[in-house]
Nucleic acid binder design. Structure first.
Lengths: 228, 228
DNA sequence: CAGATTATGTCAGCTGCTGACATTGGGCAA
DNA sequence: TTGCCCAATGTCAGCAGCTGACATAATCTG
């Protein structure tokens, strides 16, 4: 409810007219909750932050918090959603000449670069999303929730790939397989980035991702002999 | 009753001597809890089964339940652990001539086949594990927990692959990449098996898995043209 | 048969999360 | 502006997951 934009009856046309005060307030509250949660999580850890704390930091009842987010996990992962959506957008606009694998790689790189170049430094920015990623990786329940989100995102990727190549994903398994491979590569890269002392910032992430992509061929090659 | 406990032959002080009554009782309780949980979950769903129900079905306090399993998820996923361990065991014994990818594929197929041929039909068997898989896929929190377990298993696979090929996984990314790809392929296959009306039983699972493996090459091939 | 260990039971309590109902306050037409 | 409608919020009660602390009962060890 609060998460989606309600379809009001009277609007003649236009997906979004001037959002009224009510709508603006809602967005504001939602944003404030994410902010507050983010700060508290990073300061005292996910497990040691209660929903009550988050809610009262925004001066809102606990019940209201749960009307904005289904559970505590969701508010932590909300920041990632922006980046994920942008990636899908990028993928949709890749030129048709590109190989499916190329398109995926180019999209993820472009997404990180574009979001990274935005100067917004406050919470909600990419930089804070990166901080969150480290935290997610270290917090089992969060990691679990995150992985679930990722697999849902993968379904979307399958859809887009299938459309792009004009295939029926129920018949042809290639979109599903490629999406799965792509997703797992990304996760491996994320893990590596957040555990190893990798180059920081979005550009560092891009570096790591490309390193993993470059190893895809060698890893699948018949026998491994000598260094890749 | 026990004519003879499984004794390590002759060795006076092995790492594990005959397990005493205490240990046997613990295993028994643990097994009973898994059984009871399994039955209840399949009958009335994961969310609608309380820990109290499970505990009292085995005539044990709730507190004891939580001494055996860290949380409700864990008891549901405990059955899978057996299969996962066996797969790792298979992988360890693959001949060195096989390609890493071949070894992985052969191991997973062998694991499913072997476990599937065991005649034990009760809960705890492969057949009930398969029932559970469908349920996991439909239960978001369970799916989340399952995915997390899988990624931990992947770390093990990386280890085994690196040993097998004599590589340092911190230096050479190929084990990590291959393990990730393998894991994602399996997950895609599992998903497909449990959503589509796929051939049932372990052999059906093997079929689906092989279908996905066969698409790995085509999916990564440059341009997709025509059916795979 | 003691005495040391270890599993279990009991109890109290926190936190996440939900349904039900009352109240506030923005949206909108007369 | 007025006044009605309904969406957003607050309040309250309650269940379920999970944990620490302590007492009790069972096993193990010598």
């Amino acid at each position: 409810m609060a998460a989606h934009t309600p379809r009001t009856t009277g609007t003649p046309a236009g997906p979004d007219r001037a959002p009224g005060l009510r709508e603006r307030k809602k967005q504001q509250t939602r944003y404030a909750l994410i902010q507050a949660a983010h700060v508290l999580f990073l300061r005292q850890g996910f497990a040691h932050t209660t929903v009550d704390e988050i809610a009262s930091a925004v001066d809102v009842s606990q019940r209201t918090f749960f009307r904005y987010f289904a559970n505590k996990d969701e508010v932590a992962l909300a920041v990632m959603a922006v980046a994920e959506d942008y990636f899908i957008e990028c993928l949709r606009h890749r030129p048709a000449e590109e190989t499916p694998l190329q398109a995926l790689r180019a999209s993820i790189v472009k997404a990180w670069r574009d979001l990274g170049s935005e100067e917004s430094a406050g919470p909600g920015s990419i930089h804070s999303a990166l901080e969150l990623m480290r935290m997610i990786e270290e917090t089992p329940p969060l990691l679990a929730a995150h992985l679930r989100r990722v697999t849902e995102q993968e379904r979307l990727v399958v859809q887009v790939l299938a459309e792009r190549e004009g295939l029926d994903p129920a018949e042809d398994l290639r979109p599903a397989v490629l999406a799965a491979v792509f997703g797992s590569l990304l996760r491996a890269a994320h893990l590596s980035w957040s555990s190893e002392h990798a180059p920081a910032g979005p550009e560092g992430m891009v570096t790591v991702i490309e390193r993993y992509f470059d190893q895809l061929g060698p890893a699948l090659a018949g026998h491994w002999s000598g260094p890749a």
